[in-house]
Design a protein around this nucleic acid. Structure first.
Lengths: 136, 136
DNA sequence: GATGTAAATCGTAATCATTATGAATTGGAA
DNA sequence: TTCCAATTCATAATGATTACGATTTACATC
């Protein structure tokens, strides 16, 4: 996901183009790791001192609901990153050292769905954690 | 996991047999859904009025570290349930209505591991969410 | 360009889950 | 029965997240 695409989505849904949103999007487009709201805020306040808690949290929620950001839970905290470009469904390996991610082309639902007849499947989560080659 | 097995594990690791731990284990052995610490505490305080925050949280952490309970994150809160008996590795379908779970015999790591050569894999998570036949 | 209005932001306080602390109690070995 | 470390109790502290009223801003319209 690039910044232009994000703006398109925001505009389509009636959200305004503000400088704070620009700052948040800019930061995410420069960093492909998962970041917590806290880290995001700290980093941003260095470059853009006028960034408040409320603005960060509210926009993170907005962006996730619009599919601009994706979210996961790592060691008890919500982490965010730019939604992947890939148009095909995939999952992630997440490096616990450097936070870098790698796409996994495999999706287990193909096999697992068959094991759940007459269940209504709404969602699923598949993530692998460990160390990437660089950190090993 | 049954209560006797849980006590064995606790004893093996030098933990004492206390009435509070008995109460917590009893409650989990009667309910196979994932419960939050908060819900657990509320339910327990009805039957056993003398149950404090600290005791619940501390023991949940102890039980998880010993493999007596398993833990997952649902809508931003930690949820706990008795560790499965099954000796073979498996994953879970979780019903978002009633909270009941169903074991999924499939594990995606067999396929996915091959896609990550030279990565060090420490852990993985695979869960399916939706509605069970009864709730549909 | 000026104006109006709904949306967004700011600053701060409140809430909720979780963790920590220090005193009192208890399990179980000697 | 006695003793000591483990456990529990009661409560406070912490840290992430959400909420609120006042102010500011984006941007559509004139």
């Amino acid at each position: 996901m690039n910044i232009e695409k994000a703006w398109d989505i925001l505009k389509e849904n009636g959200y305004k183009e503000t400088s704070k949103r620009a700052q948040i999007l800019e930061l995410f487009s420069q960093d492909d790791r998962y970041l917590t709201a806290r880290v995001l805020l700290d980093v941003m306040q260095k470059d853009y001192p006028s960034m408040s808690f409320d603005t960060v949290y509210r926009n993170l929620a907005t962006f996730v609901s619009l599919g601009i950001l994706e979210e996961t839970e790592l060691s008890g905290e919500r982490h965010f990153r730019m939604q992947c470009e890939s148009d095909h469904h995939h999952h992630h390996f997440i490096c616990m050292e450097c936070g870098k991610i790698k796409e996994i082309p495999v999706c287990p639902m193909e096999m697992a769905g068959a094991a759940l007849p007459s269940y209504e499947i709404a969602n699923h989560k598949f993530e692998i954690y460990g160390k990437c080659p660089a950190c090993k």
